[in-house]
């Protein structure tokens, strides 16, 4: 994972130099996009919001005095942008829209079909989770944040996030198991 030390250097440089901000942008764009896409469920909104996240980050760079990581700060912006979006649109994310779920091409056809079905089922199950559990999963897996960074974004302790993710996975595991039976 990109190191925080490099981030700090890039942030410092980005205050002076647009190329440095682009370096940060390149580093975090895929993660922010995936997270936002996961939360809003369509390409157009994901693009708009991702653009606004980086725009706000660029505008607010002088405010960045985080005691946590840059990633945590950036995803806090994304978190709020997504929340604003949902408030505005009153739109529920359809987790199944997140991606067409390309199955692993290395698998044989039968296994790919099976994997695809499993992912679709998993997506539907995730959608039924409590909002904070969905958010924790999105930040952890789609935003690729550490527990500490998720904690920073969600305003919880690192231990609480660790436990939240564990319980969420346990709940998913149980529900997926029930579905299969």
């Amino acid at each position: 994972m990109a190191g925080g030390e490099n981030d700090a250097r890039l942030v410092t440089a980005a205050r002076r130099n647009r190329a440095a901000f682009v370096a940060l942008y390149r580093r975090y764009l895929p993660r922010v996009y995936r997270y936002v896409y996961r939360r809003v469920g369509n390409q157009q909104d994901a693009e708009d919001l991702t653009a606004s996240v980086f725009t706000e980050a660029l505008e607010s760079l002088e405010d960045y005095r985080e005691q946590g990581s840059f990633a945590g700060w950036l995803f806090t912006i994304a978190h709020h942008r997504v929340a604003d979006h949902h408030r505005r649109q009153r739109k529920k994310v359809d987790f199944r829209q997140v991606a067409p779920f390309l199955a692993d091409p290395a698998l044989d056809v039968e296994s790919r079909v099976e994997q695809k079905e499993r992912l679709v089922r998993l997506a539907a199950t995730i959608r039924e989770l409590a909002p904070d559990r969905q958010e924790a999963l999105a930040l952890r897996f789609f935003g690729e944040l550490s527990n500490k960074e998720v904690a920073q974004v969600m305003g919880r302790s690192e231990a609480a996030v660790k436990m939240l993710v564990c319980r969420t996975l346990r709940q998913l595991r149980r529900r997926c198991g029930e579905d299969e039976r």
Binding site: Y33, R34, R38, T50, V98, L119, F142, L169, L172
Partner: peptide, 29 residues
């Protein structure tokens, strides 16, 4: 489950050109 969640995340891809368009907007500031 962890593998599947990771696969779902990796499966989200950006529209071609989006990254570049956005980057150029930032560079133009």
């Amino acid at each position: 489950l962890v593998n599947d969640l990771r696969a779902m995340a990796q499966d989200i891809s950006m529209r071609e050109g989006f990254a570049r368009e956005l980057e150029e907007r930032f560079l133009a500031r």
